[in-house]
Amino acid sequence: MAHSKLDLYDFLLLREIRAARSVTGASEQIGLSQPAVSIRLGRLRDHFDDPLFVRTSEGMMATPFLEKLLPHIEQAINLLNPEGGSYKPFDADTSSRRFRLGLSHVAQLVMFPEIVAALRRSAPLVQLDSVDLDPSTGNLLESGKLDLAIGYTIDLHHGFYQQRLFAENYSCIARADHPRVSKALTRKQFLQEQHLALVAPTTGHSRLDKALEERGVQRKVAVRVSSFLGLERIITSTDLLAIVPSRLARTLALGGRILPLELPFPSLSYEVRQYWHERYHHDAGNSWMRKLIFDMFTNLPPAFTYQADGRTGSPDPASAPG
């Protein structure tokens, strides 16, 4: 067995390959090139006289020897790097790091454009990817293939942090020149008109039908979709109504073709949060991105203010998100 000296990067490399299940993923996290990671891994295999990782259909999996060694590796990392993983410095002015955000479709339409604009101002070289939320979101966060996830309650197991951003409620939308609906929407109109409904079991919107049922509301659903992407075109070319998150209603109304309306019954609300894995809680770049998003979206005011005469208006511009 070889007895070469080990350093922090060796321990980090083993931890990151196990999490990412690939040499490429590990190299992105610890800031070493892929050839450098491969060379170090070869030396570690010689040092421990064990393959450490084997290739499988699910990526590179740790050997039983390495699995038993990992708790001791974590202890070594904590001793050598008390910051808990902030081994990769982050400078917003010069960094070209690529961040990957897992977003609900509503967040992609409403929040993502604002995040992109903020990054262009404060971190012009940073790159940004938007990824759909799905059942693999937790695994992607844990492996580092996603930096953050943003949306309604996401089913994540132990080891994740979450942070409340803002509360959201629902509004109804119709085309601006709808022949029977204008300004205020009555309960009778709501029940008589045909509707478009979103069917998305993995999102917070899945609670809507149950909430409507509890309020004695039964929609005449003529069209069902699996995403709000393309919603504006459907609504503007039909007489259908749709219930959407209020901030999405505001976004769609900006073009003047969509009419946002207050629901004629008490609406449910939900909280939008951001989520990340504890492995990246102290990562300098992840921490910077979390703070940027929190500062932009925390405790937003209601997307619309509703007047007693049924008119719908935007909140005071001073309180709108920047």
Rank of each mutant, 00 (worst) to 15 (best):
residue 255 G to I: 02
residue 234 I to C: 13
residue 202 T to W: 13
residue 280 Y to M: 07
residue 101 L to D: 05
residue 92 A to G: 02
residue 278 E to C: 13
residue 229 L to C: 08
residue 111 M to K: 13
residue 174 A to Y: 01
residue 88 K to F: 13
residue 145 K to D: 10
residue 295 D to G: 09
residue 307 Q to A: 10
residue 284 A to Y: 08
residue 47 H to N: 07
residue 292 L to P: 03
residue 58 E to C: 08
residue 255 G to R: 15
residue 178 H to N: 10
residue 303 A to P: 03
residue 243 I to M: 15
residue 148 L to A: 01
residue 246 S to A: 13
residue 281 H to R: 15
residue 287 S to M: 09
residue 28 E to K: 15
residue 221 V to F: 02
residue 76 A to Q: 15
residue 167 A to E: 13
residue 129 D to Y: 11
residue 254 L to Y: 07
residue 87 Y to L: 12
residue 153 T to I: 07
residue 66 L to C: 04
residue 280 Y to E: 03
residue 273 R to A: 11
residue 71 P to F: 10
residue 219 R to H: 02
residue 92 A to T: 00
residue 67 E to A: 11
residue 232 E to P: 05
residue 20 A to S: 12
residue 4 S to M: 15
residue 98 R to A: 11
residue 130 S to I: 04
residue 162 Q to F: 09
residue 174 A to W: 02
residue 255 G to K: 15
residue 34 Q to C: 08
residue 151 G to Y: 00
residue 207 R to E: 13
residue 222 A to C: 08
residue 205 H to V: 02
residue 195 H to P: 10
residue 314 S to C: 11
residue 176 A to P: 04
residue 290 R to Y: 07
residue 203 T to P: 00
residue 3 H to P: 04
residue 204 G to N: 10
residue 109 L to A: 15
residue 192 Q to I: 05
residue 8 L to G: 02
residue 114 E to Y: 09
residue 119 L to E: 06
residue 59 G to L: 07
residue 41 L to A: 05
residue 297 F to E: 08
residue 79 L to N: 11
residue 296 M to V: 03
residue 16 E to G: 00
residue 251 T to S: 14
residue 125 L to K: 14
residue 130 S to L: 03
residue 66 L to V: 01
residue 315 P to D: 01
residue 285 G to R: 10
residue 39 I to N: 14
residue 119 L to C: 11
residue 61 M to S: 08
residue 26 A to T: 01
residue 218 Q to V: 12
residue 61 M to E: 10
residue 39 I to G: 06
residue 302 P to G: 10
residue 226 S to E: 09
residue 96 S to T: 14
residue 229 L to S: 08
residue 144 G to K: 00
residue 244 V to G: 01
residue 20 A to H: 03
residue 162 Q to A: 12
residue 186 T to P: 00
residue 90 F to A: 00
residue 59 G to E: 04
residue 231 L to H: 06
residue 59 G to N: 05
residue 113 P to K: 11
residue 43 R to W: 05
residue 157 H to D: 12
residue 222 A to K: 13
residue 70 L to K: 00
residue 20 A to N: 04
